[in-house]
Amino acid sequence: MYSSSLNDYIDVHVKRLLKNLLKKQEFHKINPLVDLYNLISMDTKLALGAHDLDKIEGNITLRLTQGNENYIPLGSEEAKEVKAGIYSYIDDANDIICYSEIRQVDKIKVTNESKDIFFIVHGNKETSDKYVKDIAKELITVVTYYLWGTDEIL
């Protein structure tokens, strides 16, 4: 499931966060939840994502795209074309909620009003399952400690 391009993207994503932090000597703040998972992402070198479950229709499936899915990238108002054969998280309305496993979308972005959150923790072919699970537990522990809530690992 992990391709070299996915590994490269994860590395670039984490490096971009770290480079921005070092360059500006400050952290680009979005909201408390996103800020927490970005800090954990920089520390662990894993790509993390949070999605608002109240905005997801039905079930979430990780599958290869067929090319007919709805995809509006985070920060965009316009739908983008989807290539077939890209691993993505897709809900029952055929809306991509996370394209290429790591590119988040506008539909389910978390805000200060978000209540039920679905986290995705991505490793790569060099990452052990245990490490991914440990970081998922750490993420939930930190988020529930600082922002309250309850947890469940799926």
Rank of each mutant, 00 (worst) to 15 (best):
E138H: 14
S88C: 03
S3P: 02
I30P: 01
E113Q: 12
F119C: 10
D54E: 15
N124A: 06
S3F: 04
I86E: 06
K24S: 14
L46Y: 00
D11G: 13
F119I: 07
N68A: 05
K19H: 13
Y99E: 01
T127R: 01
F118H: 10
Y2S: 03
E77N: 13
S5R: 12
D11R: 14
L39W: 11
P73W: 04
I135A: 00
G75S: 08
D92P: 05
M1E: 04
L64D: 03
V34F: 08
Y131L: 11
T127Y: 00
K45M: 13
L39F: 13
L6M: 11
Y2R: 02
Y37G: 03
Y89A: 01
N7M: 10
K83T: 00
E126R: 05
E57T: 14
K107N: 04
H122L: 13
N94L: 05
H51I: 09
T144W: 06
E101Q: 12
T61P: 04
S4D: 15
R103D: 10
Y37E: 06
S114C: 03
I108F: 04
Q25I: 06
S41G: 03
K109Q: 11
Y131G: 02
H28L: 14
D52I: 00
S5G: 06
K55H: 09
L62I: 07
N7T: 13
D43A: 15
I72D: 05
A136R: 08
Q25C: 10
S76R: 13
I102G: 12
Y145W: 10
S100E: 06
E78S: 09
